[in-house]
């Protein structure tokens, strides 16, 4: 049986992992490569790195860091932030990443999804989206609007319509990162996750709000997610990956047991 994936997320600036709430008040948690290696040893199923200041500083992604991660861990990892064209995608993949995550770039230039999928395969292209809950059902039938640039800008795009468009363009999976839940550690935005998961034929990754192992179980059962991103709950040392896995296995969730 295909197992549900647990994916630690590392927000990186200057090779250090940071964590903030709603993209603000970031504090340094440790060295990115060392933390990746530790989570790998602990049995995480995949990792994702966001080079959080690359876009804002208009510089390309830190390829040396991607190379160092690829030497240290032998499981899939995705990289996002600081990717502005097909050549950047190629460099990240050749450095050893399995996937590229596009977010603001895809909203501005949806064609990059199709170009990336054609050049490297759909499985390499992940759409990250940051939807926020809205009341205007006439404009946003799903009840969620897509934001970009660290939640700072609204796009006018309906979250479900954008997910379906990205699927049609050839994206391989979708990370649904709830603006409202991000950093709260009160649980994933389950209704949103489920809405997307039930309406696309590609894997959906729940993101934002994980604070306890039961939140992941909820994302997999109620949210219908194929994978779940975690950050603060393990970065702070409050939980370990083996501990989370044990609780999920006890809850009857299919989880990778041997590593």
């Amino acid at each position: 049986m295909l197992t549900k994936r647990i994916i630690p997320c590392l927000d990186v600036r200057d090779k250090k992992v940071t964590k903030g709430v709603k993209f603000q008040n970031n504090v340094v948690l440790g060295d990115a490569v060392e933390m990746a290696a530790r989570y790998y040893e602990d049995g995480c199923d995949e990792l994702v790195f966001y080079d959080i200041t690359a876009s804002a500083e208009r510089r390309p992604i830190d390829i040396d860091m991607v190379r160092a991660v690829a030497r240290a861990i032998h499981i899939p990892f995705a990289v996002g932030g600081g990717i502005s064209n097909l050549a950047d995608m190629g460099r990240v993949l050749l450095a050893g990443a399995e996937k590229i995550s596009v977010n603001s770039l895809a909203v501005a230039h949806p064609g990059i999804i199709a170009d990336g999928a054609r050049a490297f395969g759909s499985q390499c292209i992940v759409l990250g989206m940051d939807p926020v809950k809205v009341d205007d059902r006439a404009r946003f039938p799903s009840g969620y609007e897509v934001t970009v640039r660290g939640f700072r800008e609204r796009t006018g795009l309906d979250a479900l319509a954008w997910a379906k468009q990205a699927e049609d363009l050839g994206v391989g999976e979708i990370v649904v990162n709830s603006v409202d839940a991000d950093g709260t550690r009160n649980g994933y935005e389950l209704a949103l996750t489920r809405l997307i998961a039930e309406n696309v034929r590609i894997p959906v990754v729940a993101s934002g709000g994980a604070g306890r192992p039961s939140h992941l179980a909820d994302a997999f059962t109620q949210g219908k997610a194929d994978a779940a991103i975690i950050a603060g709950m393990i970065h702070t040392g409050e939980y370990t990956i083996p501990q989370i896995k044990r609780e999920l296995i006890a809850a009857g969730i299919p989880i990778r047991k041997k590593w």
Binding site: L2, K4, R5, R201, D226, K258
Partner: peptide
């Protein structure tokens, strides 16, 4: 069941093979 299959899935070994020596049955 999404297509492609993406993720960790178990292998049930039908026989031993030198290249899989030391690998437990049902490893993902």
């Amino acid at each position: 069941d999404k297509v492609p299959q993406i993720g960790w899935n178990a292998v049930r070994f039908q026989r031993t093979h030198p290249v899989f020596a030391g690998v437990e049955d049902e490893t993902e």
